[in-house]
């Protein structure tokens, strides 16, 4: 996928690019409003990551531009502002998602995939990983054609891991994905273990291989090898 990262904080820009590149994407970077417009005038992307406060312009104007030019790229706003007004404004101007800083790169990656999936016309409404097939509409998981009954949280977690396959996802990223940021539970990560254990068991029970790997007690990786 081709992804444009519009972000003036270079440290963050580089980290995002690094993570997305390692997932097999192509990344362009822009640190200013003008630079972003230059890129957009020449290239087309699958997804655009947009920071709203740029040194030489408002990120929202880029949304205006994209709308005016009838562009079809998926846009995810990444902003430090967690305001309902700004979310509504951004989404009504054509953004597809709104991610509040700070976020985990795995979360960003999962959102990019979700946005691109939604955008693509011939909508791949399911994801396959070897013998596992995840149906996104029906929220069902099948292993070799056999249904696996997961709870909503387990389903979300599996999807999250599959979206970031091959990557280590820290417990804290997994907790935040499932719980959002409105619970004052930031310090209790360990119960995520129970979830992973349950998913593992449910998958292997119907003949799936165990793809979850624990990494130094800090997180998990969903990977082939």
């Amino acid at each position: 996928m081709k992804i444009l990262i519009i972000e003036d904080e270079l440290g963050l820009q580089r980290s995002i690019a690094q993570y997305l590149l390692s997932q097999g994407n192509l990344c362009s970077q822009a640190s200013t409003y003008t630079e972003a417009l230059e890129r957009l005038a020449v290239y087309e992307y699958d997804c655009i990551l947009l920071d709203l406060t740029l040194p030489d312009g408002e990120g929202l104007q880029i949304l205006n531009y994209l709308q005016k030019m009838n562009r079809t790229e998926g846009v995810i706003i990444i902003s430090a502002k967690n305001s309902i007004h700004q979310k509504i404004e951004g989404l009504s101007l054509g953004a597809d998602d709104y991610l509040v800083k700070p976020f985990h790169l795995s979360e960003l990656n999962a959102r990019i995939l979700a946005v691109v999936r939604r955008k693509s016309a011939h909508g791949e409404r399911h994801i396959e990983f070897n013998e596992i097939r995840i149906d996104l509409d029906a929220k069902e998981v099948h292993v070799n054609g056999k249904a696996v009954y997961l709870t909503k949280k387990e389903f979300d977690l599996l999807l999250y891991f599959v979206s970031n396959k091959g990557k280590v996802i820290s417990k804290s990223a997994a907790v935040e994905h499932i719980w959002g940021d409105d619970s004052d539970m930031a310090d209790s990560f360990d119960f995520i273990y129970t979830h992973i254990k349950n998913i593992r068991k449910k998958l292997t029970d119907v003949g799936s291989k165990d793809y979850f790997q624990s990494v130094y007690g800090i997180g998990y990786k969903f990977t082939e090898a």
Partner: peptide, 28 residues
Amino acid sequence: TPLAVINSKLDNMLQSHVLNKEDGETLM
């Protein structure tokens, strides 16, 4: 924003293949 930078750096560092257990604990 700085927190976002730290978080993203940690996420990338976590992917490193040369981490040992001690590094893992530090990261945690």
